[in-house]
Design a protein around this nucleic acid. Structure first.
Length: 488
RNA sequence: GGGUGCAUAGCUCAGUCGGUAGAGCAACGGCCUUUUAAGCCGUGGGUCGCAGGUUCGAUCCCUGCUGCACUCACCA
C-alpha cells in the first residue's frame, strides 16, 4: 500500500515539475458524457466538446490509449493519441492514473466496434488521485471483481458511489421519492413545517431517546423520537394540513430494518378520521407507483402488488385467523397464559398491550405480505389515538399498513379530548415508573394546548427509509441511507 | 444484549491436516496509434483484523477483544 501511495506522489511531483497544476480551479463543460452519446449524430466530427470526469479505466497501446471517464450522468470512452494531444500532452497522460479527475476537449467519432468515443485534442488535469480506487471491470454486463465488502462500502460510501452505479441509482430514487412525497402533499394543500429536534420533553412514540446536555440551560435535552406532539400543536394553532419530513432518533439496536437516526414523514389533516387517511395513504403509494411507472414491485423474495385495494383487517380478527384464538375479550392474565402456551418469551413487566403486540408480531405480521391495513388497535398501546366511535372501551381508531411483513405506516383518528389525553399520558407515566422505558412521558404543555380545543384530526406517520427500501428493492436499511450508523 | 459465521496484497478471492503464503485485476519496467475484462514479456507488493496462550515453531489450534454479515430480542 505504501508503495502504491509513494508512486502516485512521485507522479504528482513529476506533474508539478512539468509546470502543470495538479488541482485545477475550474473547467468549462459543454456536455456531460451522456449528452455526448445522446447527441452523437448532431455533433459527430464537427462540434468541439468539453467534458470532465474521473478516469475509470485505461488501455494503453504505446503512443495512443483508450480510457473510460465517468461523470454523474454516465461514462464515455476517450481516445488519447500522441498526434492529437502532442508529445507534452501525452507525457502528462503517462503520469495519470485511474481515479484522476480530468477535463478534455475534442471531437466525437465512432471506433471500429461502434463505440462513441472522444478524440482528445486537449487534456487537462483537474485533480490528481494519490490513493488507488477499487478497480471494477465489466464485460457484456458481467461485473468482475466488484467492490462488495459491505463494511468498506458503508464506511467509505464515496468509493461505493464511485464504482457501483446501481448504488448511485438507489440514492437518486430515494431523492425522487422524497421529492414526490412533498409534491403529493403540497398539491393537496399541506404546509411543510420544521419543528424542534432538540426537545426538553420527548414524546409522540414509544421509544427510548438519545439524551444530551444543554450547557446554557443546565439540563438534559432529548433528540426527538417523533414530531407528533409538535405538529398537533400546529393543528391546534389553526393550520389545517401540516407535514414534516425529517430525522428522528431512537436509542435502539441496529439491524437491517433499523437505523438509530431515520427519516420519518408525519402529516396531519383536520376534520378527517382514520378511514379518510387509509384512502389517502393508499393514494400516496399508488402515486409513487405511478411516478416509478410500476404497479407491481419485486421486494426480496416477494412481488408486491399495489394495483388491488388494500384490505382493511381488524387486529383481533387477524389474531384469531393466524393464532387461532379470539382474544377480543381476554383479560390481561388470560393473555399472559395464552402467550406462554404459544411459546412466546415474556418479560416480567409485560402488560396487556404488550401481550397483544407479541401475539400479533409472532403470528400475524409475517403473513402480511401484500399491502394490508391493520385496524382497530388496543387502547393500551395507543395513548394518542381516539377511542373507537362504536363505544368499545378498549379499542382505538388506529391503523398500520403492513407490506412484506413490515410496518410502513402508523396512523390514528387523533385523540382530541384533553381530559382523556391527560389520563392516557398519566397511565403511560405509571408504566414508565414501573419500569417500561419506552412508555411515553407526560407533556403538560401538549395537554394544555389540547385544552384550548383541537379539531378532529387524522394523523399519519410513514417510515421513509422503508418506503425507499420497498421501491428500490433493498432489504437492508443501510443500503438506502448514505451514511448508515456503524460502530466506531 | 444473545446465537451463528466471517476477517489473507489496493480490489476480488485461493491456501497452509502447524514449518512465516499464492492467483486474477490494479501497480512498476518493456513492446504496441481504433482498444474495450486490450494483449504479450518481465518486476515488485502482505507484521494473514488486534492481544494473549499452547508449541521447537502459529496466518492455521485455543482464549479474549474489535469490526462486519446473518439471526433472536427491541422498535419504525
Amino acid at each position: 500500500m505504501s508503495e502504491l501511495l509513494a508512486i502516485r506522489r512521485e507522479k504528482l511531483q513529476a506533474i508539478r515539475a512539468m509546470d502543470v497544476r495538479a488541482y485545477e480551479y475550474e473547467f468549462q463543460r459543454t456536455h456531460t458524457t451522456t449528452e455526448i452519446i445522446q447527441q452523437f449524430d448532431e455533433i459527430t466530427e464537427k462540434v468541439v466538446v468539453r467534458t470532465a470526469g474521473r478516469i475509470m479505466a485505461v488501455r494503453k497501446m504505446g503512443r495512443a490509449s483508450f480510457c473510460h471517464m465517468q461523470d454523474e450522468s454516465g461514462r464515455i470512452q476517450i481516445y488519447v493519441q500522441e498526434n492529437s494531444v502532442g508529445s507534452r500532452g501525452y507525457e502528462l497522460f503517462g503520469l495519470l492514473d485511474i481515479g484522476d479527475i480530468i477535463g478534455i476537449v475534442g471531437k466525437v467519432f465512432r471506433t471500429r466496434t461502434g463505440e462513441v468515443t472522444i478524440l482528445v485534442d486537449e487534456l487537462h488535469l483537474l485533480a490528481k488521485n494519490i490513493r488507488p480506487i477499487p478497480i471494477v471491470k465489466e464485460k457484456d454486463g458481467q461485473v468482475f471483481d466488484a467492490f462488495t465488502d459491505k463494511e468498506q462500502r458503508y464506511r467509505q460510501r464515496y468509493l461505493d458511489l464511485m464504482v457501483n452505479p446501481e448504488v448511485r441509482e438507489v440514492f437518486r430514487t430515494r431523492s425522487r421519492i422524497i421529492q414526490w412525497t412533498r409534491d403529493f402533499l403540497n398539491e393537496r394543500g399541506f404546509l411543510e413545517v420544521d419543528t424542534p429536534i432538540l426537545q426538553p420533553i420527548y414524546g409522540g412514540a414509544n421509544a427510548r431517546p438519545f439524551k444530551t446536555f444543554y450547557n446554557a440551560l443546565e439540563r438534559d435535552f432529548y433528540l426527538r423520537i417523533a414530531v407528533e406532539l409538535y405538529l398537533k400543536r400546529l393543528i391546534i394553532g389553526g393550520f389545517e394540513k401540516v407535514y414534516e419530513i425529517g430525522k428522528n432518533f431512537r436509542n435502539e439496536g441496529l439491524d437491517r430494518s433499523h437505523n438509530p437516526e431515520f427519516t420519518l414523514l408525519e402529516f396531519y389533516q383536520t376534520y378527517v378520521d382514520y378511514n379518510y387517511m387509509m384512502d389517502f395513504v393508499e393514494q400516496y403509494f399508488r402515486f409513487l407507483c405511478a411516478k416509478l411507472e410500476k404497479s407491481k414491485l419485486p421486494f426480496g423474495e416477494y412481488e408486491i402488488d399495489f394495483s388491488q385495494p388494500f384490505p382493511r383487517r381488524k387486529m383481533f380478527d387477524l389474531i384469531r385467523e393466524y393464532a387461532g384464538e379470539d382474544v377480543a375479550n381476554y383479560s390481561e392474565s388470560e393473555l399472559k397464559v395464552l402467550c406462554q402456551k404459544k411459546g412466546i418469551e415474556l418479560k416480567p413487566d409485560d402488560n396487556y398491550g404488550k401481550f397483544i403486540e407479541l401475539l400479533f408480531d409472532n403470528f400475524v405480521e409475517p403473513n402480511l405480505i401484500q399491502p394490508t391495513f391493520v385496524i382497530d388497535y388496543p387502547k393500551a398501546i395507543s395513548p394518542l389515538a381516539k377511542s373507537k366511535r362504536d363505544g368499545s372501551v378498549a379499542i382505538v381508531e388506529r391503523f398500520e399498513l403492513y407490506i412484506a411483513g413490515h410496518e410502513f405506516v402508523n396512523a390514528f383518528s387523533e385523540l382530541n379530548d384533553p381530559i382523556d389525553q391527560r389520563e392516557r399520558l398519566e397511565q403511560q407515566n405509571r408504566l414508565r415508573e414501573s419500569g417500561d422505558e419506552e412508555a411515553q412521558t407526560m407533556d403538560e404543555d401538549f395537554v394544555t394546548a389540547m385544552e384550548f380545543g383541537m379539531p378532529p384530526t387524522g394523523g399519519v406517520g410513514i417510515g421513509i427509509d422503508r418506503v425507499v427500501m420497498l421501491f428500490t428493492n433493498q432489504v437492508s436499511i443501510k443500503d438506502v441511507i448514505l451514511f448508515p450508523q456503524m460502530r466506531t
